[in-house]
Simulated assay, not measured.
Amino acid sequence: MSRPLLLIVGILIILPAFVSDFWLNQILTRSIILGIAALSLTFLTTYLGVVSFAQITLAGIAGYTIAYFGPNTTGLGIELPWLFAVALALLFSTLAGALVGAIAKKSVGIYSIMITLAISMAFFYFTRQNYSIFNGWTGYSGITAPAIFGLSLEDSLVFYYATLISATAAGFLVVKFTSSPLGLAVQGVKDAARRVRAIGIPTTPVIIAAYAFSGFIAGMSGVLNVWQQERISSFSVGLSPTIDVLIIAVIGGMRHPLGAFIGAITYVLIDTFVIDLFSRDRFNMIIGLVLLFIVMAAPQGILGSFLSAKKRIRKYDNNAIKRKIKNDCEI
């Protein structure tokens, strides 16, 4: 892990000592959870070259699994130990991701967007109409987070650190996956699928594996989100949260896993404090203007623009040093 990332993690570790419970729960923890969801999208976009609108669906599958197999006040489901419920949630989201990949394996560009959007909307309407598993419009409420090693995740400080550990693990998994042979094959499919097939590597399993891995990451956010919100319904997997994840990814930048979390904190700050300056009804307009500005002025996102500026400054400094050395030699 690089020094800047270690510094950021260190700041996030000590930050709860200096912020209120509101900032801890509604700003920082929420941003981390949304960042993990956006990370599952930026992974696909950066390394496979596709935009998936199904990430909230995958997160929702994990969330509904926790609700069904965990304690709730709805009266539906089978309560299992939390560890088994989490394992099932991540398993189902991973398998669902693989299924999405199998459906969209030959789609790129606008076609992958439309296919994954269709899957997302189909799942949304299915949850609204099914009452035996998803409980229709109402969904599940009264979902309680478990206690781990005697520490209750219902405590905001404990839950914050749990989400921080999960986000660090998700980022670590993405970095390790992309540098593995399978991850390199995924990038090869993005850059030159024909060449990958020419050397004897079938592209379909590679694409499905990438979608499955993104489903696992999205599932992590789904588990954490349902524990934080203590409820889940069809509105949790609707069009609005689906687009929100895309906005977060674009704002933060897709070149580095950290971009997803920068986009998330930016989005949450706007979402939380825009009502202090404008009417709540103006939020969509404000976030739309922010997105338009990012796309036009900084298409690489906030993090991408920062890294590009840093690279230009370093190049300028190197050139200045070379000119100084050259002038000294001439003298």
Score class of each variant (00 low, 15 high):
318 N>S: 13
132 S>A: 10
40 S>K: 01
171 G>L: 08
144 T>P: 02
247 I>N: 15
82 W>E: 09
13 I>A: 10
278 F>L: 13
158 V>N: 11
249 A>M: 07
155 D>Q: 08
265 I>G: 07
7 L>K: 01
230 E>N: 11
30 R>N: 13
60 G>F: 01
165 I>F: 14
12 L>E: 00
85 A>I: 02
31 S>H: 05
10 G>M: 03
189 V>Y: 00
27 I>H: 14
137 W>V: 14
102 A>L: 10
318 N>T: 13
236 S>E: 09
297 A>W: 11
272 T>E: 15
135 N>S: 11
78 I>A: 06
83 L>C: 15
281 D>Y: 08
240 S>H: 08
297 A>N: 05
131 Y>N: 13
260 A>M: 05
203 T>Q: 08
214 S>V: 06
184 L>I: 09
127 T>R: 06
106 K>N: 12
59 A>M: 12
304 G>K: 00
34 L>A: 06
133 I>H: 04
15 L>R: 08
39 L>P: 06
143 I>W: 04
205 P>R: 02
162 A>R: 02
202 P>T: 00
101 G>I: 01
113 I>K: 05
83 L>E: 15
55 Q>G: 07
198 A>Q: 03
17 A>N: 08
135 N>I: 10
105 K>L: 14
175 V>F: 13
213 F>Q: 03
202 P>N: 03
31 S>V: 06
3 R>S: 10
251 I>G: 01
52 S>R: 00
138 T>C: 07
135 N>C: 13
76 L>E: 09
175 V>T: 10
280 R>F: 04
319 N>I: 13
223 V>M: 01
281 D>T: 03
128 R>N: 10
231 R>E: 10
134 F>Q: 07
41 L>I: 09
119 I>P: 09
175 V>M: 08
60 G>S: 02
174 V>W: 12
304 G>F: 00
307 L>E: 10
295 V>A: 01
48 L>K: 04
91 L>Y: 05
202 P>S: 12
259 G>A: 14
88 L>I: 07
178 T>H: 03
276 D>Q: 06
33 I>G: 09
291 L>I: 02
175 V>Q: 12
51 V>G: 02
